[in-house]
């Protein structure tokens, strides 16, 4: 898609693009290039000299039990977040879609968690599950279940998953509801006349027609769980206990910024970059978009 009418000017377009491109070059492309370079170098302990080591940093990474753990933890974490956030949101959206007039009211009441920062969402749930003063930890204890996410890795994982999913429900709800409201009423009415009840109509008509929305949201939720949940992990568990919630983005921060392992951290960055590129390609290739480029 191109414009038929264009302006001609030898310098103006470059000037207009300059701010965006300078920021991109200085703060995005140059650092990414540095990360690529660093990932194939090994620096001596004093940071004075570095030598080219081919893919040694990567080999080391994939032989490292901690890194492999972190990979599987990230997989468990992001699949759980996406599954929980999507199913709760879909369930609520189905209900809201049924009460046509009141749907807008429920929408207002359900969308605001989107505005809560992930780290703050983590703090909210941390307060409720705090082993000493948390109200839900207390409730669990009085039911005979001992909750202490500071020592129990599985419980820590549940806590961060719930906090991350809580924040994402509003976003999913909004898109599911919009998707459902776009389904022609006549289809649903025809099915109702043929004697299909609400559950049957959902599974045979609404759910299949929602597939594009669901797929789009799935990708968005996975991206969210991979990259935007750093704040939750940092605020709630710091990757612990004993690495039980050490997701990839937290590990790359921890190894590089706290542990100062430059080569290893850069190699992790490169792997993360590959993951983002993969997810972006999926997003643009398989999801119907209105952007043409």
């Amino acid at each position: 898609m191109e414009k038929r009418v264009v302006f001609r000017n030898p310098v103006l377009p470059y000037l207009l693009l300059a701010p965006q491109l300078i920021v991109t070059l200085v703060f995005f492309i140059w650092p990414a290039f540095q990360a690529l370079k660093q990932s194939v170098l090994l620096e001596d302990p004093f940071g004075l000299r570095s030598r080219f080591v081919w893919l040694e940093n990567f080999e080391y990474l994939f032989a490292n039990a901690q890194y492999l753990d972190s990979l599987s933890i990230t997989a468990v974490f992001s699949v759980s977040v996406a599954a929980l956030a999507l199913s709760v949101a879909l369930y609520l959206a189905v209900q809201a879609d049924r009460v046509v007039k009141a749907a807008a009211v429920y929408k207002t009441l359900l969308i605001w968690p989107y505005a809560v920062a992930p780290a703050v969402a983590g703090i909210l749930w941390l307060l409720m599950f705090n082993p000493t003063l948390g109200i839900l930890a207390y409730a669990l204890r009085s039911l005979g279940y001992d909750w202490n996410h500071q020592v129990n890795g599985d419980q820590a994982m549940v806590l961060v998953v719930v906090a991350a999913a809580w924040k994402q429900i509003s976003y999913n709800f909004l898109f599911f509801l919009a998707g459902m409201q776009a389904i022609p009423r006549s289809l649903i009415e025809a099915a109702a006349i043929d004697g299909a009840g609400p559950a049957r109509r959902f599974w045979t008509i609404v759910f299949p027609l929602l597939t594009p929305t669901t797929f789009f949201l799935l990708v968005i939720n996975i991206v969210y769980a991979f990259f935007d949940t750093f704040g939750i992990i940092h605020a709630v568990t710091q990757g612990g206990p004993a690495g039980a919630t050490n997701i990839l983005v937290y590990k790359v921060f921890n190894d590089g910024f706290i542990g100062l392992d430059l080569g290893g951290s850069a190699a992790q960055s490169v792997i993360l970059m590959a993951i983002v590129i993969g997810l972006t390609v999926i997003q643009f290739r398989f999801i119907e978009r209105k952007v043409h480029y």
Binding site: Q34, V252, F257, M273
Partner: peptide, 20 residues
């Protein structure tokens, strides 16, 4: 070039960006 920024969130280039 602008498109590429989509694929480079801060999280994947923490140290070098900090250095810049």
């Amino acid at each position: 070039m602008i498109f590429i920024t989509l694929m480079l969130p801060v999280e994947v280039r923490i140290l070098p960006t900090y250095k810049v």
